[in-house]
Amino acid sequence: MAPAGYRRGVETAITTRVDGTTRTTRVDTRTTLLDLLRERLGNTSPKKGCDHGQCGACTVLLDGRRVLACLTLAVTTHDHDVTTADGLAPDGDLHPVQQAFLDNDAFQCGYCTPGQVCSAVGALAELAQGHPSHAGDITADPEPTRAEIAERMSGNLCRCGAYTNIITAVEQAARG
């Protein structure tokens, strides 16, 4: 066993744009984007449900693409744009996906919800760009059907069991 000091963490400075604001911090290189946001930058919009990439509660948008913040090392976001569910509603004006979640009561406890919202925004962008999924014909342009939405939203667990309403909410948002 090496002495403790030998295994001490290493720090480095990074600059990340979080919800439109440039933030420069010194971080332990082991720190995840999720812990950077929640424990250093005071942005607790993304949630920690597992810290293992298994629940989706920590989903944020990295340069517009949905990623799991718990599986993203903070240092890799240097010079990139991170958007949380809070950042999707500048000045409190809800994003259409958020409004659709409200309209359809697509949540109960709300703990998975910011991740669901970011994931839905990412999923709709992927649909619009023609990314295929297991639920549809991969040679055709995908449509936001209930089956497609359910498939694409299955990386975001909801223990309150709001799935049926989540699908309806994302359908509503897809209609624009």
């Binding site: 993304p46 569910a85 999707l88």
Partner: peptide
Amino acid sequence: IPRRDGHAKVTGTATYAYETPADNAAY
């Protein structure tokens, strides 16, 4: 009736126990 806490939950600004704002927290 829509949820009173709905706006806070869809934006992630509802603060759960771990997220309570606090200066100089230890872990």
